[in-house]
Amino acid sequence: MRNKALVYVEINDNRVEKVSKEIVAHVKKHFTDTELCAVLVADDQTIQTIIPDIKDLGLDKIYIIQNILLKHYNVSVYSSVLSQLISNINPDVFLMGATCDGRELAPRIASKLNIGLTADCTDLQLDIDGNLLATRPTYGGKMMATIISKTKPNFATVRQGAFKFSQQQFLEPEIIFFDADYCGLDNLINQIEILKTHKKGHVQDWAEADIIVAGGAGLKSKDNFELMYKLAELIGGKPAASRAAVELGWAPQNLQVGQTGKSISPKLYIAFGISGALQHMTGVSNAQKIIAVNIDKNAPIMSIADIAIPADAIEVINALISKLSN
């Protein structure tokens, strides 16, 4: 094979981040003539629990960097061992998820290796010479840019939800243990101490729901916005909010659609009183069906959605709730 692509598989709480699987599925489907490799970084106990989870992704090789020093994520330490692996195996393309950790880990590795890096991509293709064409939103989603890099590996982070995860046929991957140099790494670990962690639970689960109902400034008040929670529960979906609704203080920021770092792809997206700014619409562009309910016929969303219903959003929500409650 001509190209070698390496995907960093991010582990959190003993599970593989979904975006890592999404990247693997995309590379498998769209990169021709490419050897597909993954790298895992953790302590040996975690590695044992993770391997079964990634064995059926259709990978050719899995590189494993395991050591007790790698039990907890530390950006200085992880960037050191991953840089060592990159220098050793020289992949043509290196990819990781644009998660919170990925977005600080990737630039550290790029800086260490003096290579280019493209952030938070929503599309990745290879040109005929095997160079990565990395496309990303910029100016807050108002513009798209396709970036190329002069250095190898071509390195990019990928927005969560930008690609669809699909189970692959089973292919027994070759497992290779990489022996990193851990000299001095315990000093790096001692520079930082996490005194307390509070997990917010799986607040992001809404982003993976099949049906998402979202409210915007057109709902006029926080009380009206709170009807979204009730409606979502009644139809078995999840509530979300536009940036305007978040900025008005009606909804927490982790419910915001179109936020940097995250795309959603529900089967059905219903927008109530949302005007549909470009960055909002790029955030939901993977939705199978979009219904917009807005009293303003001229709101941008009314000419972008699949179904546009010019009506008072609050009245429609109330009607839906009363029908579903009966």
Binding site: T118, P137, I304
Partner: peptide
């Protein structure tokens, strides 16, 4: 600088929008 912008473009979002006019809230719901 290793990275270069190859092209920049405005995102295009296109769906065949169907406008559903309804006489009342009930039928919309």
């Amino acid at each position: 600088s290793p990275t270069q912008v190859k092209k920049a473009f405005r995102p295009v979002i296109e769906r065949n929008t169907k406008v559903v006019e309804s006489d009342n809230t009930d039928s919309a719901a």
